[in-house]
Design a protein around this nucleic acid. Structure first.
Length: 456
RNA sequence: GCGUCGGUGGUAGAGUGGUCAAUUACACUUGGCUGUAAACCAAGCGGCUUCGGCCUUCGGGGGUUCGAAUCCCUCCCGGCGCA
């Protein structure tokens, strides 16, 4: 990048927490991104169920698409011909692309589960989802892969994928990923990495991290060699290390020193892998160049946005608003609700009366909003509007949350905002099962009074 | 009226002497979802339980049998055919 990518406007110093919470701006050719920012996930050049015409209204400044998925369909050449991923999806703002490294994990994990089924490992051991033998480079075994359902095999040079769409074989290397991402043309893209199972054992985690570092160097070299792309696109390196602090530290120092434009926290932060994945990743911040922009890959639960922001993470992407939206779970200031639950039959209130999204907000002309009763009905009848509405609401809930985190950093009220928000979000979330129980009990006994019982 | 086929859990629909509290799907109830193989997945879905079982269920009633959703008789209900 010829001009500086990132400027920090305000910083809350913190000796133990990475670089400390900060507000800043990412400058791209397609516009600025005020940070911290929530990035919409548009894997296949679409945020599922949400039109790009709605992005701005929902508070999205940028979206992130996926190299692997767009490579498979429609192919990077088509996207390039259409003017790049932003123009392709009819979006004027900044874009990012992810390298496909996550698919090494998500597509490869199917294999490990099948292996454990055969009894090679304990029933509960899913720790070697990808390449159990850490030291010996794993060669691709087509017969093994197809017969056991594994879709990604890692070796030192790259990854061989079996397409999840049609079973065809594809090869990704750092150079190939960068080449594809040049054609996709996003403003910011990521180096090809190997995302591991967070619970993978130390030896494997270390080996994968080393591989990721060597791939990072190659990704960066491939990018710097392309003069044109280099002028238009920024490249972030991704750090790994699982839940091991020494590996995380080593990864942060190594990637941080390579000369990337930014840094991505690598891993999978799902709670099913325990509570330490995100924390271990955030510990990397202390070892990175302080002015380097940080992206939290796949970080988006409200608690995690606060936690990440507190450590100095600048951008976050996450599928949670749209995936939850599609499956009926809506964020509210009083905790999540499942709009499909029976208690919302005939509920005239909006999803969250405190929300300013187009779904919850009364229309200025009619004074009407989308009721829980209506959205519940749409889900029950499997209408496509249902997931669309909740996805919109959830996206706005998170972009607004991150916007307010930004404001609180600028106003020196971050800690207060975090505490007050999370106190309600968690407390009322915990209470809701009881509320639901009593609500249902009363409803069974006195169906006619249901309208008068406050539901959240 | 005669003949014939059929009546199974919220619905559809398997089962047709014991391994059946009864396959499966849908519905329903509740969970889960963090760089999207996800408009998905999982669990529950007669009652009670000291979790080993116990009790009540396959249109109603009666019978055969060690044992019946399954066989027999009868009644009720429905489809079809003939009058």
């Amino acid at each position: 990048m010829s001009s500086p990518l990132f400027t920090v406007e305000k910083k809350i110093p913190h000796s133990e927490r990475g670089t400390g919470a900060r507000a800043g701006t990412l400058h791209t050719l397609r516009g600025d991104i005020k940070t911290p920012a929530f990035v919409g996930v548009a894997t296949k050049a679409t945020i599922k169920g949400v039109s790009s015409a709605q992005f701005a209204e929902l508070g999205l400044q940028t979206v992130i698409a996926n190299t692997y998925h767009l490579y498979l369909s429609p192919g990077e050449d088509v996207v390039q011909k259409m003017g790049g991923v932003a123009q392709f999806m009819n979006w004027k703002g900044p874009t990012m692309t992810d390298s496909g490294g996550f698919q090494v994990f998500s597509l490869g994990s199917g294999f490990g589960k099948k292996v454990s089924k055969f009894g090679n490992r304990g029933e509960t051991s899913n720790q070697f989802e990808v390449s159990p033998r850490s030291d010996s480079p794993v060669r691709y075994d087509e017969e093994l892969a197809t017969s056991h359902g594994k879709l990604a095999i890692v070796d030192e040079d790259g990854v061989t994928f079996t397409s999840h769409l049609n079973g065809t074989m594809h090869r990704f290397t750092p150079e190939r990923s960068v080449e594809i991402q040049h054609k996709l043309g996003a403003d910011i893209f990521f180096a090809f990495d190997e995302c591991t199972e967070p619970t993978a054992l130390y030896e494997y985690q270390k080996a994968a991290m080393g591989r990721t570092h060597r791939w990072a160097k190659r990704s960066l070299a491939a990018h710097r060699q392309n003069f044109e792309a280099n002028k238009r696109q920024a490249i972030y390196g991704i750090g790994q290390g699982g839940q091991f602090d020494d590996l995380r530290q080593e990864s942060a120092r190594t990637i941080g020193d390579m000369g990337f434009d930014g840094f991505g926290l690598g891993g999978s932060f799902s709670k099913k892998y325990g509570d330490n994945s995100l924390q271990s990743a955030l510990n990397m911040l202390a070892y990175l160049p302080p002015e380097m922009p940080i992206h939290g890959l796949g970080v988006g639960e409200p608690e995690d946005l606060f936690l990440g922001a507190a450590y100095g993470v600048d951008t976050f992407d996450c599928v949670i608003p749209t995936r939850n939206g599609r499956t009926g779970t809506a964020f509210t200031h009083r905790g999540n609700i499942n709009i499909e639950n029976a208690q919302y039959i005939g509920d005239p209130s909006p999803i969250d009366p405190e929300c300013d999204c187009p779904v919850c907000t009364p229309d200025p002309l009619t004074g009407m909003y989308f009721t829980k009763a209506y959205i519940h009905h749409l889900f029950r009848t499997k209408e496509m509007l249902a997931p669309m509405l909740v996805s919109q609401h959830n996206i706005r809930f998170l972009t607004r949350l991150v916007d307010r985190i930004r404001d609180s950093i600028l106003n020196d009220t971050f800690d207060h905002f975090r505490d007050s928000f999370l106190e309600r979000y968690n407390r009322e979330s915990q209470n809701s099962p009881l509320l639901t129980q009593s609500h249902n009990l009363i409803r069974q006994q006195n169906p006619q009074v249901v309208e008068h019982i406050p539901s959240h």
